[in-house]
Design a binder for these strands. Structure first.
Length: 457
DNA sequence: TCTGGGGTCCTAGGACCC
DNA sequence: TCTGGGGTCCTAGGACCC
């Protein structure tokens, strides 16, 4: 455990709304609500003026409108927020090399990594005030709240105590008593469901939690959650500040203004989503093996269907095909209000099955990552590849491995053809094309894949 | 007033292999 | 021939966060 409060948690105040007020002076001092402005919209951020009327994040926009009809209701401008966020994060990185962004408006800063040691409360207070001033300057006037402590947990909770525009430094050694009187819900990870379970065990405050022994806690909330909660409650949190965390999944989803029943319309929307997911994968130089389709019914029950390919792909056609298949397997009777398409099990290497033998020379750098890969996949088939078979006709490769290749014999005209597995050296199976699948479907758009200087995520 | 979009992590059951 | 434990992968769902 650290002996000085060298972890900062920086949280921009009402970020999206503050950016809108910065850019439109007529909105300053007035209630501003940013979020979905459609029929099924939800509030992302309410300015402090709007919060006076009870408008909160995650509230439906319809309710917000009834509580505060005279507020300005604005759709989110993520590009602008991203740009501002980068300017703010740059100020933190100027202070320390170790910065962990949690979202566009939040980050941890590790002062110890900047060589700042034996910090007093006054030192940290002064550093925080300076950082706030730098952020304000760099962002065109935005305010931030800063919490500081010997751990992430303490810093995070502290930043919330004097919002907006505040600084709270928790002295080393006072962590457990700082937490004790608070409700358990101040601990990140304790939401309504966990709070309910804990209250049935008589636990409402962190002090209650500190009394409870770990085994009993685990019995109530499960093993992973229980042991982490036990450690956090007793303020023994040694989680390090981590600067780059790798992306685990990429997804797109959309809630419709009215429920959709038409399968062909959904298929078309799913195709577009698959293409957008693919674009984002390619931009991030990622590919993934698991495709997931998410549906939300009219009654808000949510279902996912997923399928894992034998090898990773970023090909829009493959993702779209798998998504279509998964959507066909989904029950949409009664209509759905949301459709989503995502890819996970990400790999940051390019699958070399995408290249023919002669093209290997063009991608020598990828070879360093080959030991990560199962041997069986190096068979010359890749997911989505078009093939033909004299008996079954035209199909495409679903996956390959262990010397076998699985093919779905389906085309636009025969959408539900058979699925068959062959030996990889089965001569009856013919590849329709041996060239790398070109990114043809996005090639015509001038605004994608060309701008190398586009904003990074 | 009905409930966004982007994520992360965990759990549990079944398949499969050794 | 029967029983089984452990490990890993996959799938589905749920809780939670901003």
């Amino acid at each position: 455990m650290r002996t000085d409060p060298s972890i900062l948690h920086v949280d921009l105040d009402a970020f999206f709304a503050a950016v809108e007020q910065r850019d439109k002076p007529s909105l300053r001092g007035k209630p501003v609500v940013v979020g979905g402005i459609g029929l099924r919209g939800v509030v992302s951020t309410a300015s402090y003026e709007a919060r006076k009327y009870g408008v909160r994040s995650a509230m439906s926009t319809a309710e917000a409108r009834s509580r505060c009809p005279h507020a300005a209701y604005l759709g989110a401008r993520f590009d602008v927020y991203r740009e501002t966020s980068q300017a703010v994060m740059a100020q933190m990185r100027a202070l320390s090399p170790l910065v962990e962004p949690l979202s566009l408006d939040e980050a941890f800063v590790d002062l110890a990594a900047a060589g700042l040691n034996n910090l007093t409360v006054e030192d940290v207070q002064a550093i925080s005030e300076d950082l706030k001033a730098a952020i304000k300057e760099a962002s065109g006037g935005l305010t931030a709240s800063v919490g500081a402590g010997t751990s992430k947990l303490i810093a995070k909770i502290a930043s919330d105590l004097d919002k907006p525009d505040g600084v709270v430094v928790v002295p080393a050694g006072t962590e457990a008593e700082f937490l004790a009187p608070m409700q358990v819900t101040v601990i990140p990870g304790v939401g309504p469901a966990t709070a309910q379970r804990l209250s049935m065990a008589g636990v409402r405050t962190v002090a209650d939690l500190q009394q409870l022994d770990e085994d009993e806690l685990i019995r109530h909330v499960g093993s992973a959650h229980g042991s982490s909660l036990h450690r956090l409650a007793t303020a023994s949190d040694d989680r390090p500040v981590v600067s780059d965390r790798e992306t685990k999944s990429i997804s797109i989803e959309d809630t419709f203004e009215t429920d959709i029943i038409d399968r062909s319309l959904l298929a078309a929307i799913g195709d577009r989503m698959a293409h957008r997911v693919s674009e984002r994968l390619q931009k991030a130089q990622l590919s993934g093996r698991t495709v997931t389709v998410k549906t939300r019914m009219h009654d808000f029950t949510t279902h996912t269907r997923s399928s894992t390919l034998a090898g990773p792909t970023d090909d829009p056609r493959v993702i779209a095909r798998v998504a279509r298949r998964l959507l066909e397997d989904s029950d949409i009777s009664g209509g759905i209000r949301l459709l989503g398409v995502g890819v996970s099990s990400l790999a940051d290497w390019i699958q070399d099955d995408l290249f023919t033998e002669s093209e290997h020379a063009e991608a020598p750098l990828e070879l360093v990552d080959l030991p990560e890969r199962p041997r069986e996949r190096q068979v010359g088939y890749y997911p989505g590849q078009d093939v033909t078979h004299p008996e079954y006709g035209q199909g495409w490769v679903w996956g390959s491995g262990r010397g076998r290749v699985t093919v779905r014999f389906e085309t636009a005209s025969t959408p539900a053809g058979p699925v068959r597995t062959f030996a990889v050296d089965d001569p009856a199976l013919t590849k329709v094309t041996t060239v790398k699948p070109p990114p043809d479907e996005v090639g015509g758009d001038k605004d994608v894949a060309t701008g190398q200087d586009g904003p990074d995520e």
